[in-house]
Computed example of a mutant assay.
Amino acid sequence: MSEHEHESAAGESNSRYWTANIRLLLTLMAIWFAVSFGAGILFRDWLDQFMLGGYPLGFWFAQQGSIYTFIALIFFYNWRIHKIEQSFNLDDDDEVAASMEGGAG
């Protein structure tokens, strides 16, 4: 493979990685927006007819639900981006482990 073909393949892989990364971020931000703005503000009156932990559901989403959702999305993003990095051979877990072992001795 020539150097030009190698650079082209690397650039295409880099582009596909960032497309997957941005798509994931936009999806997760849309979910968070729907939960925080939609459930906490737009649909609060309708959701208030249901109770969760003794509180109206719309109130709960406005006060706690969007925060819990955001934390869950952070953990999901961490898991999913790790899988994406592995699929593009960008996973640096082995390098980090090797540097920690080498630095300890």
Results as ranks from 00 to 15, higher is better:
residue 84 I to Y: 02
residue 102 G to P: 00
residue 26 L to M: 11
residue 81 I to T: 06
residue 35 V to E: 05
residue 3 E to S: 12
residue 53 G to A: 05
residue 103 G to H: 09
residue 1 M to A: 14
residue 77 Y to Q: 10
residue 95 E to W: 11
residue 21 N to L: 06
residue 41 I to K: 12
residue 96 V to F: 07
residue 5 E to C: 02
residue 51 M to A: 13
residue 87 S to P: 00
residue 4 H to A: 11
residue 51 M to V: 15
residue 73 L to S: 06
residue 20 A to Y: 01
residue 44 R to V: 00
residue 97 A to T: 09
residue 3 E to A: 13
residue 94 D to S: 08
residue 47 L to P: 00
residue 83 K to N: 10
residue 4 H to I: 12
residue 71 I to N: 10
residue 12 E to L: 13
residue 54 G to W: 06
residue 51 M to D: 14
residue 81 I to S: 04
residue 51 M to I: 15
residue 28 L to D: 12
residue 104 A to T: 08
residue 84 I to P: 02
residue 67 I to H: 08
residue 58 G to R: 04
residue 32 W to E: 13
residue 61 F to Q: 04
residue 74 I to M: 14
residue 77 Y to W: 15
residue 103 G to T: 05
residue 6 H to V: 13
residue 86 Q to Y: 01
residue 70 F to Q: 14
residue 36 S to P: 00
residue 94 D to V: 06
residue 71 I to H: 07
residue 46 W to H: 08
residue 104 A to F: 09
residue 57 L to F: 03
residue 94 D to N: 09
residue 90 L to T: 00
residue 9 A to I: 10
residue 82 H to F: 07
residue 57 L to N: 02
residue 46 W to T: 10
residue 104 A to K: 14
residue 24 L to E: 10
residue 68 Y to N: 12
residue 98 A to P: 01
residue 66 S to C: 11
residue 44 R to T: 02
residue 58 G to D: 02
residue 29 M to G: 08
residue 80 R to W: 12
residue 48 D to I: 01
residue 71 I to E: 11
residue 31 I to L: 14
residue 76 F to W: 14
residue 15 S to K: 07
residue 63 Q to E: 15
residue 11 G to Y: 03
residue 84 I to A: 04
residue 91 D to Q: 06
residue 92 D to E: 13
residue 82 H to S: 13
residue 101 E to F: 06
residue 90 L to Y: 08
